[in-house]
Amino acid sequence: MKKLFFIVSIIALSITAKAQEAAKPETPKLYNPAADAKAEITAAVKTAQAQHKNVLLQIGGNWCIWCLRFNDLVTKDAELNKYMNDNFVVLHVNWSPENKNEKVLAALGYPQRFGFPVFVVLDGKGTRLHTQNSGYLEEGKGHSKAKVMEFFQGWAPAALDPKSYVEKEKAK
């Protein structure tokens, strides 16, 4: 009888554990280790040029909690999301043990030296404009909305357009 009770208890615990595991929300898969990063960047640059935007490369991996937290902030905050999508073509570039994209990152000036996530801004011609260490955007256990918006605004196409500054001078 004790053996039967023990076996039933083990089965019940096993079923409970499986049910809890199934109920956990799945971690988003933002980064694709199998993707051809070079081809995707080329396509993003072409799209950015056609849409008069810059390219925002978010380099990291699905293993990186800070990468997921950043994505969560910029996709769930309506103001950040709108500004980001109005001004950038966004591409997640994988870095993981399966695919470190070493040649692509070398061509981008080794941004991984800052840790992950790291952001690279390209213009519509594919020229690297800026590499952003995400540590400067952090606040507490996430990223600061104000700091992220300032980063976006500082590297949006209008911020880099000389006409913006000529018009400001004329207005004075």
Rank of each mutant, 00 (worst) to 15 (best):
G142Y: 04
G135Q: 12
K145N: 06
S144R: 02
T131F: 04
E150I: 09
V148S: 03
Y110G: 08
F151P: 04
D123Y: 11
F114S: 07
P111L: 00
P157Q: 07
F151H: 07
T131P: 05
P111C: 00
A146R: 11
T131D: 02
D123M: 14
H130F: 11
Q153C: 05
G140H: 03
R113Q: 13
R113Y: 06
Q112L: 11
V121Y: 11
E138Y: 05
G142E: 02
S144M: 08
L108A: 02
D123C: 13
M149Y: 09
D161L: 03
L129E: 06
Y110M: 05
P117L: 13
F114W: 15
H130N: 11
V121H: 10
E138A: 13
L137N: 01
G142K: 06
V121D: 01
L105N: 01
V118T: 15
V121T: 14
L160H: 15
Q132K: 10
L105K: 00
A156P: 01
G124S: 13
D123Q: 14
Q153P: 04
A106M: 06
G135C: 04
L108W: 07
V120I: 02
Q132T: 00
L137M: 08
F152V: 01
K145D: 06
A158K: 14
M149G: 05
F119D: 02
F119M: 15
M149S: 06
Q153S: 12
K145P: 07
V118E: 04
D161M: 02
V120T: 01
Y136M: 10
Q112Y: 10
A156Q: 10
F119T: 02
A106F: 06
F114C: 07
L105S: 00
D123P: 02
P117N: 07
K145L: 07
G126H: 08
G135I: 09
F114P: 09
P117C: 12
P111E: 00
N133C: 07
A159W: 12
P117Q: 03
Q132P: 00
E150A: 15
A159I: 11
L137V: 08
M149A: 02
L105D: 00
F119Q: 05
A107G: 05
G115Y: 03
E138W: 09
P117S: 10
G142L: 07
F152H: 02
E150L: 08
G142S: 08
A159R: 11
M149P: 08
V118N: 10
G135V: 10
D123G: 13
T127M: 08
E138Q: 15
A159G: 09
D123H: 14
L108H: 03
D123E: 12
